[in-house]
């Protein structure tokens, strides 16, 4: 039985097989059609809808939006509003400062994980970093609210130790929001830096010390430049959601608005002014997009400059080594 079948079905000739592959390739790009349709329907179109709303106005006390007269007035309202500007500036400051502090805390942790720990304990620590990250964002923030409460245990301990005269007045301040965002986005900084450091070829550091470099020059000339992709990814991953954060300031910052996310939300939820809310949301999104594009560009430029600088430095090292 097997013999005649083997003759009847020879391996497909080369030409036919190639054609088959070509046909497969054509089909393969259509595999992306469902996600494209989905994103069109639930990302592009809804965005188009709020873009449209942002050119309208709030018609009456109970109406949310009206597009019978189109104008840029809502954007003028956004940019002319001192409160919006103040909160936007505050948000930007919290985001930049938060991303910087997160980086300073995360880098040594990631370095410790990638360089000092053994591969086995490294995976355990990785899971330990992920567990708080996978705990509900809102619940984690509530944990801080409980701890930092005026009548919470930290307040009581500090008072018992005599370090504090009255109750702890930390919750519902900008500093509390700052602490909350640094905490909430820390894993998003640790992980990408860890991934780049883990893939780093540590023999380069040995080469540096063989060539007479010390630990500091090794870090500045080898480790730091090579971990730039991770740092860049981490800064993006922290900065972007931080700019739009709404939960952390609501829980730790109290009722007075501290961040733009709260302003956007309040226009839709309480003020019922969808036109103005849309204009704010679009302004926020365009701003974040601009930051992402510009900083990616700066980062690429920085890496290029660092590479060029290293190329000049290396021969000097050789001479020093001798």
């Amino acid at each position: 039985m097997s013999h005649p079948i083997a003759i009847e079905v020879p391996p497909p000739p080369l030409e036919r097989r190639r054609r088959g592959t070509k046909k497969f390739r054509w089909r393969i790009s259509t595999l992306a059609a469902p996600i494209a349709a989905y994103l069109f329907l639930f990302f592009i179109v809804p965005f188009g809808v709020i873009l449209w709303y942002s050119f309208g106005f709030k018609p009456s006390l109970y109406g949310t939006h009206d597009n019978s007269v189109l104008s840029f007035d809502r954007y003028a309202e956004v940019f002319g509003n001192a409160d919006f500007f103040a909160i936007f500036g505050k948000t930007l400051w919290i985001s930049i400062f938060g991303a910087a502090v997160t980086l300073l805390i995360a880098y040594p942790v990631a370095y410790w994980m990638a360089k000092i720990l053994t591969p086995r304990s490294r995976n355990i620590v990785l899971v330990l970093v992920l567990i708080p990250y996978w705990t509900n964002f809102l619940i984690r923030t509530l944990g801080w609210q409980i701890a930092l409460n005026q009548n919470g245990f930290i307040s009581r301990i500090l008072q018992d130790l005599g370090l504090l005269n009255g109750p702890l007045e930390f919750l519902y301040t900008n500093q509390a929001v700052q602490l909350g965002v640094v905490y909430n986005y820390l894993p998003l900084m640790i992980l990408p830096i860890y991934v780049t450091l883990e893939q780093l070829d540590w023999r380069l550091l040995e080469a540096n010390s063989d060539l007479g470099g010390n630990a500091i020059s090794g870090f500045l000339r080898v480790t730091l430049p090579l971990s730039m992709p991770g740092i860049g990814a981490g800064l993006m991953l922290v900065f972007v959601p931080l700019m739009g954060d709404y939960i952390t300031p609501e829980i730790l910052g109290g009722t007075k608005g501290t961040m733009v996310g709260q302003l956007v939300a309040s226009q839709f939820k309480t003020a019922q002014n969808w036109a103005l809310g849309s204009a704010m949301a679009i302004t926020l999104m365009l701003f974040i997009l601009a930051v992402v594009v510009v900083s990616t560009w700066i980062l690429r430029l920085g890496v290029r400059i660092a590479k060029r600088a290293n190329r000049i430095v290396l021969p000097e090292l050789v001479i020093e080594g001798k």
Partner: peptide, 21 residues
């Protein structure tokens, strides 16, 4: 590019655009 844009869009912007839609 679109997928990248989805990933950098703040959740609050998605939220306010999906609600009316």
């Amino acid at each position: 590019g679109l997928l990248g844009l989805v990933m950098v869009t703040p959740e609050i912007v998605n939220a306010v655009s999906l609600l009316p839609w």
